[in-house]
Write a protein that binds this DNA or RNA. Structure first.
Lengths: 108, 108
DNA sequence: GATTTATGTTAGTCATGACTTACGGTAATT
DNA sequence: AATTACCGTAAGTCATGACTAACATAAATC
């Protein structure tokens, strides 16, 4: 299940977002991700766990290494949530403008 | 300045997201928002401050009351960031597939 | 002008989470 | 089979933040 709550929490951390952006450029094992990041390898592992539980990444065992890659489904879920939100906010804004015009018309 | 970092942090909190969704339905003063939420009014004020600094809402004084509404600019910034991200991840995925095909062709 | 209404701010508490070190487990290598 | 490479987990520390209660401020009302 792709939870919007978990996804937003996952992306709110800068380090985790950095990992996610790295994976956007292509799949990678944990150690490679840890090099080039200012945190330890276990920290990266913990971040990847959060990203995985949020449905944003998937993993695959490959010998001793574990390859992580972006899960498009999770990213798509956030986009969908955001789009629906955008639509609601826009229609509410338009309704508000219409109400405002009506009020001014009544007052002359 | 609409900072993606601040925006994502702002939306990662469930209570704050609830406030934001309420405002998506239309502008509202602080007290009205606080009723119908399980937290105190000062808590709502603090959340609104975070949302405002993230560029997600704007406020307007109206007598003793302060009306908050959604700032479309902030929401649009997140959408833009997400779309660009989506594009990068997709092209990287396609490139990976192409590399994989090439590898299989070489091996016969 | 005193009171009421509506809100922002401050101080303090408590829970959460990001991090490191140490350890355990599994697969490849020699 | 011993060693090495790679990774996840556990425990513990420390900073951050969400929350409440108390106080301060500004506008409307009486």
């Amino acid at each position: 299940m792709t939870n919007i709550n978990l996804a937003l929490i996952a992306l709110s951390d800068p380090t985790r977002r950095q990992i996610f952006e790295r994976l956007a450029a292509g799949p990678s094992p944990v150690g490679v991700l840890a090099d080039g990041l200012p945190v330890s390898r276990p920290a990266v592992s913990q971040h990847l766990k959060v990203l995985k539980e949020a449905g944003l990444v998937s993993d695959e065992s490959q010998g001793t290494r574990r390859i992580y890659r972006i899960d498009p489904a999770g990213l798509g879920a956030i986009r969908q949530w955001l789009d629906r939100f955008w639509e609601v906010a826009l229609t509410a804004f338009q309704a508000e403008v219409a109400r405002d015009n009506e009020r001014r018309k009544d007052q002359g």
